[in-house]
């Protein structure tokens, strides 16, 4: 008998002619997994299948060897989910909202009362528990979202773009919170923001056009990356030409020239200084120019 194994096998989801998720297989055990990809890569569709919100077109998802769709509520009992588009009941107070979700998660009123206080404390929302959900800021709503997701001490915590739209301090707070929650559970964190994943995820999955294009730890992905980072000083009027020829991770304009960080297998020019490859470089290497996301270039 396996313990805490969430396994996806040849999982696909088609929307008419579009393959949102295309034949992906992976096994999750306890730990934080970062699902990294640009918008439209299929991350949300995959997460919605993992949370049984969508039925796969083909393939299967199993928990300790059992089909999760057949497990039905026994599987959902293990789940905590924070969706990307996290909607709220505007007329509910934060406490009402959490108690309602607690009831849906099969917590008794006594358990719910206790647990709600606990998650309010965990997310720093205690003083806002009486506030109407409609009056909360984006960051507060996300905190309430995390709070509802962990109400039932889920074995599988699925967080879809949890830091989207948050300011840097809220984002750091979130990352710390996720790290706190990671013990003894599977945390699947989807994002297109590299630094979020880099700081908390033990395993990273790069997803592109519905497929897993690379998986591993940050170090493994960096080691496997075909490109290296090079620091090059170029005349300002040649910046465009370098953009055309190479993947440029960064441009820094100085007084008499420009300093480019270029991703390339070989030195792009004489005098180029090799630099340590980062996860951002890996991301850019796989996703190229399309990696520009809503939060800016797919990076923080």
């Amino acid at each position: 008998m396996l313990f805490m194994e969430l396994k996806i096998t040849n999982l696909s989801k088609d929307f008419r002619k579009t393959k949102a998720v295309n034949q992906v297989s992976y096994t999750f055990h306890s730990g934080v997994y970062g699902l990294l990809g640009i918008n439209g890569a299929g991350k949300t569709t995959l997460m919605r299948m993992l949370t049984t919100l969508l039925n796969p077109t083909s393939g299967e998802i199993t928990w300790d060897g059992e089909d999760v769709f057949k497990m039905d509520k026994a599987y959902r009992k293990l789940l905590g989910y924070l969706p990307q588009d996290f909607g709220v009941y505007p007329d509910f107070s934060v406490q009402d909202y959490l108690r309602y979700i607690a009831a849906l998660k099969n917590l008794t009123p006594t358990e719910a009362k206790e647990k709600v206080q606990e998650v309010l404390l965990l997310t720093g929302m205690t003083q806002f528990k009486g506030k109407k959900m409609r009056t909360l800021s984006g960051g507060m709503k996300r905190r309430a979202g995390i709070a509802q997701a962990v109400l039932n001490d889920p074995k599988i915590l699925v967080l879809d773009e949890p830091t989207a739209g948050l300011d840097p301090s809220e984002r750091i707070r979130f990352r710390n919170l996720i790290s706190e929650l990671a013990a003894d559970r599977i945390v699947l964190l989807s994002t297109h923001i590299v630094s979020d994943v880099e700081s908390v995820a033990g395993q990273i999955i790069l997803m592109k056009e519905g497929r897993f294009v690379a998986t591993g730890t940050t170090e493994e992905l960096i080691a496997a990356c075909p490109d290296k980072g090079w620091l090059c000083n170029v005349p300002k009027d040649e910046v465009y030409a370098y953009h055309q020829k190479y993947r440029v991770a960064n441009v820094k304009t100085l007084s008499d020239h420009a300093q480019l960080r270029i991703l390339s297998q070989d030195a792009p020019m004489p005098g180029a200084v090799p630099e340590e490859t980062s996860l951002e470089d890996v991301f850019l290497s796989y996703f190229g120019e399309r990696s520009g996301g809503e939060d800016g270039n797919g990076m923080v």
């Binding site: 509520k73 959902r76 924070l82 969706p83 996290f86 909607g87 998660k105 997701a149």
Partner: peptide, 18 residues
């Protein structure tokens, strides 16, 4: 409409008792 269905349906009782 409020996009609360994702959380609702992912809970233990969302689909049946809910």
């Amino acid at each position: 409409r409020r996009k609360t269905d994702a959380v609702y349906f992912s809970t233990e009782h969302g689909r049946k008792k809910g």
